[in-house]
Simulated scan of single mutants.
Amino acid sequence: MRIFHIATAADWQAAEESGSYTTSTLGRTLAEEGFIHASRSDQWEGVRAAFYADVAEPLVLLEIDTDLLDVPVVEEVPAPGISETFPHVYGAIPAAAVVDVRPLEA
């Protein structure tokens, strides 16, 4: 399965250098949040509009192949009052599991 994650270009560059991606969401680490937020293909644009619209630094869209992960991916409701589930990655994402990186236009 393919899932998606919006990242700053700087966070992705750091992940390429270290070999793993550990940013949960904008300004929060995996250690702070407990998982990495992700989206399905039909969700990432809405996530971008809701949470990244005011971000001035360059963003990229990571396409992650879940078959290449060695940590659980769980479909969960992100907050009370929301009925739609989102994939949450419970561990670091190996850079090798990211099969495509697309720059997102401002």
Rank of each mutant, 00 (worst) to 15 (best):
S41F: 15
Q43P: 05
H37W: 13
R102T: 15
V60L: 09
T23S: 13
L61K: 10
L59K: 15
G46Q: 10
P80G: 06
Y21N: 02
L26K: 13
I36P: 00
L59C: 10
E33N: 12
Q43E: 07
P87F: 06
T23M: 14
A14W: 08
D54H: 14
D42W: 09
Y21L: 06
E45R: 15
F51A: 14
L30F: 07
H88W: 11
V89P: 00
P94G: 01
Q13T: 11
P103R: 15
F86A: 13
P72F: 03
I6N: 05
F35I: 01
V98Q: 00
T29S: 15
V71I: 03
S39D: 14
I6F: 06
E45T: 11
E105Q: 13
L69H: 02
D67L: 06
Y52Q: 08
P78G: 05
V55R: 10
T8N: 07
I3M: 05
E17D: 14
T25L: 12
F51C: 12
D65P: 00
Q43S: 05
Q13V: 08
S24A: 14
V60D: 05
I36S: 01
A106L: 13
P80I: 09
R28Q: 13
G46P: 03
A97I: 05
R40V: 05
A95Y: 03
I64N: 00
E32Y: 04
D11Y: 10
V99E: 00
A106K: 14
H5I: 08
A97Y: 01
L26M: 14
A31P: 03
G19F: 03
E32M: 07
A15V: 02
H88Q: 10
P78H: 07
A9W: 11
G27Y: 11
D54N: 14
A106W: 11
A50S: 15
L59S: 07
T66W: 06
P94M: 02
E105I: 10
